[in-house]
Design a protein around this nucleic acid. Structure first.
Lengths: 164, 164
DNA sequence: AATGGATGGTTTCGTCTGAAACGGATGCCT
DNA sequence: AGGCATCCGTTTCAGACGAAACCATCCATT
């Protein structure tokens, strides 16, 4: 078996290479870490989110959110307030400055992403999008085998769910 | 723009989720880091490689190789010798113990990968493979030709071309 | 052969990361 | 109300990482 043809390796390498092209933009050029970028992305879209909503919509765990939010707050890009209804929770909101920075960074990232994706034939691009969505579903399916109705429950659970 | 529909985000999240399913096997279960895993993979295939051949065939940089090789040597899974022909170079070879461990880990990883990929309809799987290969080519295409406009030829390609 | 520049591997440094520990806050149960 | 388990966010700690500095070796030129 050659590693170059082992699909999981190909996927990981290509995905990382693509990601690096974008990190080069929002990271090096606009000074955001990956987590900060994602958090700003969510907040620019929603304006304001509490931590429960946030954890539902990100692939970030609570530690990552906490650290990214600290840095974003220090930079004045978001505000973080304790919720009155449940003082364990936080409400995150994007500031004008944060919105301004994000929009600029997002524009640049979009350009870079488009530059790469438009170098693909349209059919390949469609195949990629289709394949990624299907893979996502397959992971969910293979990871949580029960799914209720058809009763074909796979035997022992070999990999405890990713505790996020 | 919702982050959930931003393609670069989708790709990164899904690829990482897939990767985690495999790291859970060769990592948690067999005690290998990602870099150790890749190095063993190459060496099990080739038996023995010098560092030049190795850098052509991996996405690992020299620091990662050095560190992973140190750990693998400590564990007795590979040997590392200085080449007589050029004493700057190293020759890496897999040991019997390394081969044994890798084969076991590889079997387990393959099962886990197949469990997920076989949960996809065959056509989606084909689309995914096609899309990934095309994306790889598109990244190469969109990043290489930038040397022309820039005046300063900034040769240093961070990812040396994958020989093929 | 000696010098200077290039090449390859290792080490160092500051930062980041994940897992676990921690501490505040809430809801449940008696 | 008082315990007690649970839930959240933050902090801690040890290990991992990337970039740059560093050291050894080779090669080209003289």
């Amino acid at each position: 078996m050659h590693i170059e043809t082992f699909f999981p390796y190909r996927l990981a390498v290509v995905a990382e290479r693509f990601s690096r092209q974008l990190v080069a933009v929002y990271g090096r050029q606009h000074g955001l870490s990956r987590e900060e970028w994602r958090l700003l992305f969510l907040l620019e879209d929603a304006g304001s989110l509490d931590s429960l909503q946030l954890s539902q919509r990100t692939s970030l765990d609570k530690v990552q959110v906490s650290r990214a939010a600290t840095r974003l707050e220090e930079k004045g890009l978001i505000t973080r307030t304790i919720l009155g209804s449940d003082r364990r929770l936080r409400n995150y909101a994007i500031t004008d400055e944060g919105r301004r920075l994000f929009r600029q960074a997002f524009g640049d990232v979009e350009v870079q992403a488009a530059r790469i994706l438009e170098a693909m034939p349209a059919r390949d691009r469609a195949a990629l999008e289709r394949g990624i969505e299907a893979l996502d579903r397959a992971i969910a399916k293979a990871t949580q085998p029960e799914a209720g109705q058809d009763g074909r429950s796979q035997a022992a659970d070999p990999v405890p769910g990713r505790g996020r």
